[in-house]
């Protein structure tokens, strides 16, 4: 069967089916297909724990190598949850092995990022108070770059890349401006909330 059709058929298989194929045939190809579905999320989890891009990249590949052996020997009911626990434990062990700081500890320079994670709540704040006087006041308190990025992203619906092109900045910096601006905006609005 041509490879094109074969891959298309395999991509429609569920996690459990791919897992069963791998267990039955021991062909790593099936496991790779399965892992590719979650590799972005695994990378994110490793980033959150290790706080280092290169360490997270190495961890993602090491977890894959562990999977090759562990999937054959472990009884796995739900691969997704099992992979999450495996990835988390691996990164924690890696962190412990490197004798780095505890994961609960956040360096001061990273506190902005840590606070910025707060999910959709702050996004709702922006939506709710978009036309209010408080929001306008708080926006004025932001730095120019943060304010410009927030406005372009939330009210002009521009993407990071478009903002970066317009401001001649790196995409990563635009992300940082938006995250930090959003955090400061939330703090300001909570302070001024009636």
């Amino acid at each position: 069967m041509p490879r094109f059709f074969r891959i298309k058929a395999e991509s429609t298989l569920s996690d459990e089916e791919l897992l069963a194929y791998y267990r039955r045939t021991s062909e790593v190809h099936y496991l790779t297909l399965l892992y590719e579905r979650y590799v972005t999320m695994v990378y994110g989890v490793c980033l959150n724990i290790l706080r280092d891009v290169h360490a997270a990249e190495d961890a993602v590949m090491s977890i894959y190598e562990e999977l090759v052996h562990k999937v054959q020997t472990h009884q796995i009911e739900a691969f997704r949850g099992w992979l999450y626990v495996l990835a988390r434990n691996y990164c924690l062990m890696e962190l412990r092995r490197q004798k780095r700081v505890s994961i609960d500890y956040q360096a001061p320079e990273k506190m902005a990022y840590h606070d910025a994670v707060a999910s959709g709540e702050e996004f709702e704040l922006i939506q709710d108070y978009a036309d209010t006087h408080h929001l306008q006041q708080c926006l004025q308190k932001l730095s120019d770059k943060q304010r410009l990025c927030i406005i372009q992203f939330y009210w002009e619906n521009k993407s990071y890349r478009e903002i970066a092109l317009e401001m001649s900045e790196d995409i990563g910096k635009i992300r940082s401006y938006i995250q930090n601006g959003r955090r400061n905006l939330r703090l300001c609005m909570e302070k001024n909330r009636p």
Partner: peptide, 12 residues
């Protein structure tokens, strides 16, 4: 947690 990891290092 994955999202938390990404936004922890936005400039990378």
């Amino acid at each position: 947690e994955a999202w938390k990891g990404f936004v922890a290092l936005p400039a990378e």
